[in-house]
Amino acid sequence: MSEKISLDEIKKMAQLSKLSFSQEELEQFFVDINSVVSHFDKLNQLDLSDVSPTSHISWSQPPSNPDEPREWPGRQEVFAHAPQVIDSYFIVPKVVDKQEE
């Protein structure tokens, strides 16, 4: 039997994901996530000691680029879609880490 996820761990996950939920929602997640985790118990019944972890279904030579720069012509279009651009900077609400203050 795998260890269940606690409500505190769910709150921590929400915090890390920068998401906020109501108490009811958190409780619903508690039920849902625990049922998902329980499902993994089934997988744990298999003996996989000789199988190495799969990080990707393909293991082959991937495409690669030569080290030759090329200009991308579409940046004006990106500027046009950005909420605000000043002096070619994308403008976002002030982000100063505590450490930078």
């Binding site: 002096d87 900077y89 994308f90 403008i91 976002v92 609400p93 002030k94 982000v95 100063v96």
Partner: peptide, 18 residues
């Protein structure tokens, strides 16, 4: 890179350069 002060960037904003 983030720019927190610039001639035309409002003080409540930051500029992003990719």
């Amino acid at each position: 890179k983030l720019v927190h002060e610039g001639l035309n960037i409002p003080s409540e904003c930051s500029g992003v350069d990719f």
